[in-house]
Structure formats: C-alpha cells, structure tokens
Amino acid sequence: MSLGYIVRRLLGAIPLLFGISLILFTIVHLAPGGPLDVYVDNPSVSKEALDQIAKAYGLDQPVPVQYVLWLKSMLVGDWGYSIRTGRPVLSEIVLRLGPTMELGGLALLLSLLIAIPLGIISASRRGSKLDGTLTLVSFAGISTPVFWLALLLQLLFSVHLGWLPSAGYKSIGDGSFPDRLAHIVMPAAVLSLATIASWSRFIRSGMVDVLNQDYIRTAYAKGRGERGVVFFHALRNALIPAVTVIAVDFGTVISGAVITETVFAWPGIGRLFMESMDGRDYPMLMGLMMMGSVGIIVANIVADLTYAALDPRIRYG
C-alpha cells in the first residue's frame, strides 16, 4: 500500500466525476417541473417577474449552456447560489454536514458494534435455534420500511412513554450532551437497523465459509480453543467480503438519511436534499450530489486499502 497508489486512484476519479456530473445534471433537468413552479398559482407574479428571476439564476439559458457555466464556476471552487434561499450552496452544505456526520457516524458505529457480534454468534452456532431466531430478526429488519419503523418508535417513546423528543436536533435553548443524545437515539437506531440486518448476514456467511476451510481445522488440530480460532483465525478473513458490502452501503446510508432526516426533522444533508428536490433547486442539488459522489468514491478507495490491511496477501503498488 503506497502513497503512489492512493494518488493514482484519486486522479482516476477525476474523469469519473466529470462523467457523473454530466449524467446528474441531465437527470436533474429531465425531472418535470422547475424552481419557479412555486409561483404557478399566484397570478400577481407576472410572466415578466418570472422571466427576471429566471434570468438572475441563468435559468433562461439552454441546459447545455447552463451545464458549462456550472462546470466552469465549480472548477474554480464556486458552488453557486441556492435558488431557494439565495445563500451560497457551499455554506448551506457545510452547515448541514455536521448533523449528518453525527447521525451517520453514530449509525455506522452502532451497525458495526451490533452486526459483527451478531454475525459471529450466528455463524458459530449455525443451525441452532439462536441462529434461526437471528436470521428471522435480520430479515424482518431488512424488510421494515424506515418511515414506518420511525413512526412506531415516535408513537411509543414520545407519545405514550414521553421519554424521548419525537423529532429535531436539539431542544430550543438547550443543546447539552444529554439533550442531544435524547434527540439522536431514535434516528440513529432507525438508520442503522437495515444495515445491522444486512451486514450481520454478510458477516455470518463469510464466517460460515471460513469456518469450513482447512486452516481452521488445522488451528483446532494444533489445540487452539474455539474462541481463539473464531476471533484470531476466522474473523479477519471473514471480514473481507463484509468490507466490500460496507463500502458499497455508504451510498445506502446516504439515501437512508434522506428519509430518516426528513421524518425526524434532522437538519442534515439528507433533509436539505429533500427540500432542494421539492423546490427543484438545481445548484443545491448538484452540489449535494457531487459531494455524495465524492464520498462514495472515497469510501471505495478506503475499502480497497482496508483489504490490504486485513489480508497481507493483497498488495497495491
């Protein structure tokens, strides 16, 4: 694993990003509607006023010209202005990034801390009642719609028990650690549920494969106890396929955040995306999606590097 490899991978991502940006720009403009649709019922917003607003945001230009203009300013680090709020896209995104990192980070941590042990237990007790139960629960978790689970949790913990706030980032005038913890528990639990369920399945099947290998039998033969075999010999090898899934799932976490953040009124990137989509806020949508693309590319590079760390036989150079 060398620095040269990382640099090469990052350079390779540049043409990829150009391609992605072109596709995204096209798709965003293909979607029906436009940023000025909010004024459609209001007769006092005249055609002239609409034309003037369109001109101010360059919406009067043909789409290919708009793309070139957008690309030009993006290349010099100007992300443009949000049509909805009139504020710079970059500062809006930076403002929303913090809450999303907190939520996504906690969800990721929860997922790993729960999924790995679950997968190991399932695999090492394969065929047992416990394994069967965990399998059932996992599939239930994968199949549960996020918004429905969120609603149930809100009804239980906020309306009936009154233990947790049903939505929001912090209480007004508070924002202490316990207050923020109370706000983040439900969205993080909801966001991590699907990933816990699917990751534990991957870790389980990875473990099952590995536990049937010859070198595991050898390890038992040389007198190692079960715990040692499972954690020292098997887990590292079983994690390699799981890492791929986790990296690929980075995108799922982002898209899951769109729903979770909207349901829980979490002021993050996902919610900003939803609002921008509703208002067809083109500059904001492009900024958000480009950032997401960069995130996914980076996650993939990190995954490749993690392979090498987990398996000494894998070398990049």
Binding site: F147, S158, V159, A167, V263, M274
Partner: peptide, 12 residues
C-alpha cells in the same frame, strides 16, 4: 417537513 411527524408532535 414530514406531516406524520408533525401530527406526532401535536400528540406529544
């Protein structure tokens, strides 16, 4: 933004 959540907040 979510109207279900809004109703939940009215309830709570």
């Amino acid at each position: 933004p979510d109207t279900n959540t809004l109703i939940t907040q009215l309830k709570s």
